[in-house]
Design a protein around this nucleic acid. Sequence first.
DNA 1: CACATTAATGACACCCGGTGCCGGATGGGA
DNA 2: TCCCATCCGGCACCGGGTGTCATTAATGTG
Lengths: 199, 199
Amino acid sequence: MVHEPRPGVFGRPRTTTHDAIESRALDLFDERGFEQTTVDDVAAAAGISRRTLFRYFSSKNDIPWGRFADGLAELERRLEASPTDVPLWRALHEAILDFNELPPGAEVQHRRRMRLLLETPALQAHSALMYAEWRGVVQRFAARRYDVPADHVRAVVVGHAALAVSLAAYEAWLAQDDADLVEVLDEALAALREHLGAV
Amino acid sequence: MVHEPRPGVFGRPRTTTHDAIESRALDLFDERGFEQTTVDDVAAAAGISRRTLFRYFSSKNDIPWGRFADGLAELERRLEASPTDVPLWRALHEAILDFNELPPGAEVQHRRRMRLLLETPALQAHSALMYAEWRGVVQRFAARRYDVPADHVRAVVVGHAALAVSLAAYEAWLAQDDADLVEVLDEALAALREHLGAV
DNA sequence: CACATTAATGACACCCGGTGCCGGATGGGA
DNA sequence: TCCCATCCGGCACCGGGTGTCATTAATGTG
């Protein structure tokens, strides 16, 4: 979305980056909790002014979401490239598994972030807006495959259901320390199919 | 949740009610939009002080949700009384249909409210917290029927999926003026079952 | 080197949602 | 009449977020 380096040859150079701010912020959120950390605290820790922080992140709630928007674009590309000879639900599931794949060392960090996002009320609320964009991607994909308008119930419900599986899996993954995210995603989808009589 | 009359025989009598405030507020939200209406505006229109308004509603976002919490308790009772000889998904769907049944005259009002809730970003976000409680009810019901712990993936995914169907249905219902909510709910569930291969 | 240009920063004032606190208003009961 | 319970309004205050503007730090040009 926002391209970081942007070799802005002109003008005063940036004194910080999204990543630097995010990193300091997550440390503070971890130490004191999200609500107990003020934006001024984060700004001070990052060595910038409060006003500048809001030029990098449009709200305090946006900070923990990091590069989520970039991930969305990737999911969209991945879906466009998915095979057309397998059932929609399976193609979708494969893409979502890829989407949730993470580099080996990143698991601990990802757990911290997701725990924060899923267990902080203010962030749970804000997350709904992020999920809406995620659903939008899935929904448009389903609409193309079903050859219906993007706002047709059949497409909309697929978006919501895919999110349902992912969120259920994340909750289970967080609840159990040794759980594997991919396995839990598989399990959640299987449970849903069984629930609805698809066996 | 909060019982309105509560024959508070003692003390100064209340000068307003939840319903009165809500009614004035929804009018203003309709006229100027949610974001453009300040809490002071609502308080003034309701003839009370800002401070008092916050004693009736814990946040501006809570106002449009009205008696949702009461509805939850009813859903829970309805689920407990549901027959055990039909598949879980069908029992659940029937209960949800009942939950969304409304008195004949209330349709227009309900549409206004739901449009506000689903199309205002600030309220979309806040809604996630309400949905979480709704899912909790469904989830506990599924856990009992499946005889698994309440936080087991199988139960969690059922809660999320039921919400998925309801939300997809509401979106479609709002998008089409002459749509019938019950029909759309049926259609959304059928679409999801078909999507997942249950035919 | 002086100077325009560009882009980012920081400080300030301000708005709004929300909370803690307290004094005062309004009723019923002894 | 006095007491008590309950609700109300006002005020000060906090934290998130925005609009504005002067300032700073770089590049490019004469």
